[in-house]
């Protein structure tokens, strides 16, 4: 055996692994170094007293409070649009549909999952413009359009996690209720879904993370640089990732740039926490499934 090739492999692996770790550490370290100082209540509310801002007594102009609120509302709407549809489709795929149909549907979901988010955003944008021209002259890109487009973006994740969580249930548990006279839906709703719940929750958390971080979809479908707090489903709104993007290209002063760093740290923490949580739940589930598989 070639001793040199083995040595090179080991060295190469260490170099590559440490280089990538280093790159990520530098990127995040730089962000924290530059932005940690701006993490205070002024970052959120600017010169306005927090209580006044939260009670909507005064508008916040130089803090990121409107963007935080916008992201929260956006995530809430799009996830509540996508979750019921995604879970329903996942149940259909895992429990009702014949194998052939499952493959065909699965292919469409995979395509949707891989479609660049800017394409989905552009789809939302052009449909809105199209409707504006033809049926609904008062419709413009707005919070609702963004939420719907984001729902399309996360739909395949929800479907797939639901499907996989259901299909991972052992055959023994799966046929318990039917043997006792359960109809298919009784089996799904009373036995299988409760069992698959953790998996579905992990998919939902992932969807929340995706909605919170996505910039490409919303930048075409209604997010604006300064709209204040979200007021209506049919109006523009602010969002954290878009705020970061605008600051990076057109910051007016050092204060705004510092706010950009602060906002980036907040989004970073939010998303990494959500993603790790989702991974943690999934690895727990996998370990539980593996434990069961042993005799």
């Amino acid at each position: 055996m070639n001793r040199l090739a083995e040595k090179m492999t080991v060295i190469g692996a260490w170099v590559c692994g440490l280089a990538l770790l280093g790159a990520v550490a530098v990127l995040l370290g730089y962000l924290v170094m530059k932005g940690a100082g701006s993490l205070d209540s002024a970052l959120l509310f600017g010169d306005v007293r927090p209580a006044d801002a939260l009670l909507l007594r005064r508008q916040v102009f130089d803090g990121i409070f409107p963007a935080v609120a916008g992201t929260l509302v956006l995530v809430l709407i799009s996830v509540s649009l996508a979750v019921p549809a995604g879970i329903a489709a996942g149940i259909y795929l895992a429990e009702y549909c014949p194998a052939r149909t499952r493959r065909i549907f699965g292919h469409f979901y995979d395509i949707l999952a891989a479609t660049p988010s800017i394409v989905i955003g552009f789809f939302g944008f052009s449909v809105t413009i199209f409707l504006h021209r033809t049926l609904a002259p008062r419709l413009y890109p707005c919070l609702m359009v963004s939420a719907l487009s984001l729902a399309f973006l996360v739909l395949p994740y929800l479907i797939r996690t639901t499907q996989m969580a259901l299909e991972g249930i052992p055959a023994g548990l799966r046929r318990t209720a039917p043997a006792l006279g359960a109809t298919r839906w009784q089996n799904v709703s009373r036995v299988l879904l409760p069992r698959a719940l953790t998996g579905i929750v992990s998919g939902t958390i992932l969807a929340i993370g995706r909605c919170a971080e996505d910039t490409a979809v919303i930048m075409l479908t209604g997010v604006v640089a300064s709209a204040g707090l979200p007021r209506s489903l049919w109006a523009g709104y602010e969002a954290l990732p878009f705020y970061i993007y605008t600051v990076s290209s057109q910051y007016a002063d050092a204060r705004e740039l510092a706010n950009g760093y602060g906002a980036a740290i907040i989004v970073l923490i939010l998303c990494t926490v959500l993603f790790s949580l989702s991974f943690l739940i999934r690895s727990r589930l996998a370990r539980r499934a593996a434990g069961r598989a042993l005799p």
Binding site: A89, Y92, Y96, C97, F105, I120, F122, F123, R184
Partner: peptide
């Protein structure tokens, strides 16, 4: 009958979700 309604609803959700990717293509 309830079973049939539920299955139809679930199938509708799956079909609608699958049609999104077709719709994006068709519209563009």
């Amino acid at each position: 009958r309830a079973e049939w309604i539920i299955e139809s609803l679930l199938r509708a959700a799956a079909l609608a979700s699958a049609s999104v990717s077709v719709l994006i293509f068709a519209f563009m």
